[in-house]
Design a protein around this nucleic acid. Structure first.
Length: 353
DNA sequence: TATACGTGGGC
DNA sequence: TGCCCAAGTAT
């Protein structure tokens, strides 16, 4: 009987695991094997770069070191810690989920994907990531990195953001999962996608999967993944009021759902023509505020995912302000206590100048 | 099933 | 400058 050659073990899984063991980046959550750290990092990393997440993760762990600490924190504290990270429903969902774990699950984070997925903010990807990385379960993950790696490696021509493409890729991810090593393998796949198999200019010459990728895909790598295109974003004109009375400015809290849910803002609204003519009307129709426009304070441009805005900012005098729990007079020095999106944080910087 | 949801960096 | 992209989820 012939002796098995080393090539016998030279599988996709072994190549990737071996490469990752030698080349993986040092990341703060990788020093913390506890499930809560994995959970928090996975939520923060959704649609967000590693370099952006690192300082937020470290600060978060100082403020909310355990599930119980997070469950006992206020929404305001949590949103303040999240400010600047974007997709703020992640923060509110994470806090809600922590309350469920602390209150209904004896403080124990579920090990299985079915129970994990019942928690707000945990979808198919995150459930697989927590189950495999934190608890050693044999569960696949499929994120943007894994989609790209597999789309190139297996020359997937179906759009990766179509239902058919997603189903195909989840099947591929499950079929290729090495039993007992799912956590390390999933991370290796994502690490490869992030550092070698990049969206643009993939570093194929130094890829550990080069031979098998070339053998299967034969030069189509740069054409993958295929994506359905998205539509263009509209551009809106807004007017915002810095309403000053008795040394304080008026802030409004946004509804808990939708854009910047639960965050605070300077009252503002969309205007059609000249912003200086439209500002008072916009604040009256949007907030029932009656104000008199004074001087212009500045202009803020911003691009959200689905639209762009140009915001004209005016100082205003209050004429009639309703009693409303979503409205609050704030000393300029205390504006930092109120979680805000980027646009309103910039406007806050204009106050007092 | 398509769309909404933030922000920052690269080219 | 403008567009693409990034460890997705909820509705």
């Amino acid at each position: 009987m012939p002796c098995p050659s080393p090539k016998t073990f030279d599988t996709l899984q072994n190549r990737l695991l071996d490469w990752c063991h030698k080349n993986k980046r040092i990341l703060p959550w990788r020093d913390r094997p506890d499930a809560y750290s994995v959970w928090v990092s996975e939520i923060m990393l959704q649609q967000t770069r590693v370099e952006t997440v690192i300082p937020y993760f470290e600060n978060w762990m100082r403020l909310f070191p355990t599930v119980a600490a997070l469950a006992n924190a206020s929404e305001r504290e949590v949103l303040n810690a999240w400010e600047g990270l974007g997709y703020y429903s992640r923060a509110r969902n994470l806090r809600q989920a922590a309350k469920i774990v602390a209150g209904d699950l004896e403080g124990k984070i579920p090990h299985d994907v079915e129970t994990l997925r019942k928690l707000p903010g945990i979808g198919r990807y995150t459930a697989g990531a927590i189950a495999s990385i934190a608890f050693g379960m044999d569960e696949p993950v499929l994120d943007g990195n894994v989609k790209r790696v597999y789309a190139r490696l297996f020359d997937v021509t179906e759009a990766v953001n179509s239902p058919k493409g997603e189903k195909l890729l989840w099947d591929i991810a499950r079929e290729n999962l090495p039993k007992g090593k799912a956590g390390d393998f999933n991370q290796a796949l994502m690490e490869l996608g992030a550092t070698i198999c990049a969206p643009r200019s993939p570093r194929c010459p130094i890829c550990p999967l080069r031979e098998m990728c070339m053998a299967r895909a034969n030069g189509t790598q740069e054409l993958r993944p295929v994506k359905k295109l998205k539509k263009e974003t509209p551009h809106y004109i807004h007017a915002a009021g810095v309403i000053v009375g008795e040394g304080k400015v008026l802030l409004a809290q946004r509804p808990s759902k939708g854009l910047l849910g639960g965050m605070w803002e300077f009252p503002n609204g969309r205007v059609d023509g000249d912003p200086s003519r439209g500002v008072a009307k916009a604040l009256r129709s949007g907030y029932s505020l009656k104000v008199r426009r004074k001087e212009a304070l500045g202009i803020v441009h911003h691009a959200y995912t689905h639209f762009k805005v140009t915001v004209y900012v005016f100082r205003c005098d209050p004429l009639s302000i309703p009693e409303n729990e979503n409205l609050e007079w704030v000393l300029p020095g205390n504006l930092g206590d109120f979680p805000m999106g980027k646009v309103d944080r910039q406007i806050a910087g204009m106050v007092g100048r």
